Simulated scan of single mutants.
Amino acid sequence: MPCGEAALLLELSDLADVGAMHAKVLAADPHGVVDLVPAERTLLVTIDTRQRTLTSLREQLLTLHSTRPAQAASPSAGTTPRKIPVRYDGEDLQAVADLLNLSVPELITRHQSHTWSVAFTGFAPGFAYLTAPGWTVAVPRLPESRPAVASGSVALAGSYCGIYPRTSPGGWRIIGHTDVPLWDEDLQPPALLPPGSAVEFVEHT
């Protein structure tokens, strides 16, 4: 669908379809595309209208979507995972372990045993929605959001993991904290974890 005069919004079936399409567009590197913004079921593609038209973009995107990738892979396949040190001291750590019928050490081991990938970003600048193929559990959000969640809080909600880049309200269940900055406006790009990047969580030492 047209989204303003310089972008198309693709509505896709699910997160896996978004990830596959995002990877296809990145690999094709279409002429005139200046920005890609994946979300849970959509992909926004923005162009420089001095270089091409939305009509030509639509035709190319339809062709890309109809082609099968050379091999099934996550958007972060082939990228070097960024290590994120975590202190597993979150106020919801025991409650999450109980919800999943795990001990706290088992929960920590399971959290660290996956390579996570950034499916999309949102909610706040630098907040990455992380998924992992082997993470099959769903963690319910808190019944009521906290008025303030500390910057660096590592949290779970649904099938996602996320790290709060700044202090803000939030209803995700906090399992730990990290000192790694997630957003710095003086850097390019300012987000530490853009869509498609890979993450591994390790014990803070």
Results as ranks from 00 to 15, higher is better:
residue 115 T to I: 08
residue 104 V to Y: 08
residue 111 H to T: 11
residue 83 K to L: 15
residue 111 H to A: 10
residue 100 L to K: 01
residue 126 G to W: 06
residue 92 D to M: 10
residue 119 A to K: 03
residue 105 P to Y: 04
residue 125 P to L: 12
residue 77 A to I: 00
residue 124 A to L: 15
residue 75 P to G: 02
residue 111 H to C: 12
residue 109 T to P: 01
residue 110 R to G: 01
residue 76 S to A: 15
residue 113 S to V: 07
residue 116 W to R: 05
residue 99 L to A: 00
residue 84 I to F: 05
residue 126 G to C: 10
residue 76 S to H: 15
residue 122 G to H: 13
residue 107 L to K: 04
residue 106 E to D: 13
residue 76 S to M: 11
residue 90 G to P: 13
residue 128 A to L: 13
residue 98 D to S: 09
residue 99 L to H: 00
residue 128 A to V: 09
residue 114 H to W: 09
residue 124 A to D: 03
residue 114 H to P: 00
residue 81 P to T: 09
residue 122 G to A: 15
residue 122 G to I: 14
residue 78 G to R: 07
residue 102 L to F: 02
residue 77 A to E: 06
residue 80 T to E: 15
residue 99 L to D: 00
residue 121 T to L: 14
residue 94 Q to D: 13
residue 91 E to T: 13
residue 114 H to R: 07
residue 114 H to M: 10
residue 91 E to M: 11
residue 100 L to G: 01
residue 89 D to A: 14
residue 111 H to Q: 15
residue 122 G to L: 13
residue 97 A to V: 03
residue 86 V to K: 11
residue 111 H to I: 14
residue 124 A to W: 08
residue 129 Y to Q: 08
residue 96 V to E: 01
residue 103 S to C: 06
residue 83 K to P: 03
residue 75 P to F: 01
residue 97 A to M: 04
residue 103 S to Q: 10
residue 75 P to C: 11
residue 125 P to K: 08
residue 92 D to F: 07
residue 80 T to C: 13
residue 101 N to S: 15
residue 110 R to T: 11
residue 110 R to A: 07
residue 118 V to H: 02
residue 117 S to L: 08
residue 111 H to S: 10
residue 79 T to A: 15
residue 108 I to M: 04
residue 118 V to W: 00
residue 112 Q to M: 15
residue 117 S to Q: 13
residue 89 D to G: 10
residue 93 L to N: 03
residue 121 T to M: 14
residue 106 E to I: 05
residue 96 V to N: 02
residue 79 T to N: 15
residue 127 F to A: 00
residue 82 R to F: 10
